[in-house]
């Protein structure tokens, strides 16, 4: 009985979480260019309860909007670790996936989820606002079913992530 209620609490919490996703205001790469249209009057992300918030403490989603170079990665990790659980990461565009057009650049991190756990990727360069919104909808489904557990994975595999981060950042 007790487990049941705990389960129910989790369901309710997830239901609330998916309806109010605050993303951190951090334009890590050029994918951020398609965020203003998504936020503003034409696509109006706020319909889904998504809103940009300023500091790492307030936000739920970290958007890695495009490529990450080494200098940014350090800040992204700081920001990610400052965020409060539950927190979700969305990798934006092909650069976050595999380096994209910068596959041969010395400055760019090739694969995002070696360093921080990504819950979702959006393919494309750049992803269109429709794609972004569809990704958010998908994330909501994942949260609802409890599958968006990147923050748990990060805690579980902290050694792995730290090792990878250390290799790059030194």
């Amino acid at each position: 009985m007790e487990r049941m209620t705990e389960e129910q609490v989790k369901t309710i919490a997830n239901m609330l979480r998916k309806r109010s996703l605050w993303m951190i205001h951090y334009c890590t790469g050029c994918g951020a260019m398609e965020l203003p249209p998504t936020m503003t009057s034409r696509y109006d992300m706020e319909r889904f309860g998504l809103a940009p918030y300023v500091t790492s403490r307030q936000a739920d989603i970290l958007l890695i909007t495009g490529y990450l170079n080494v200098k940014t990665l350090r800040r992204v990790i700081t920001v990610y670790e400052q965020m409060l659980d539950p927190k979700y990461v969305i990798g934006f565009g092909s650069c976050a996936l595999n380096g994209g057009v910068y596959w041969d650049s010395y400055a760019v991190i090739k694969q995002l989820d070696r360093y921080i756990p990504a819950d979702l990727y959006i393919a494309g360069c750049m992803p269109r606002p429709e794609a972004i919104i569809s990704a958010f909808r998908h994330l909501m489904e994942l949260i609802d079913s409890g599958k968006a557990d990147g923050y748990k994975r990060y805690k579980r595999n902290l050694a792995y992530y730290k090792e990878n981060q250390r290799k790059v950042l030194g």
């Binding site: 500091t55 790492s56 800040r75 992204v76 700081t78 920001v79 400052q82």
Partner: peptide, 9 residues
Amino acid sequence: YDNYAAGQV
């Protein structure tokens, strides 16, 4: 020191 500094440490 674990504080918001616009992403800096």
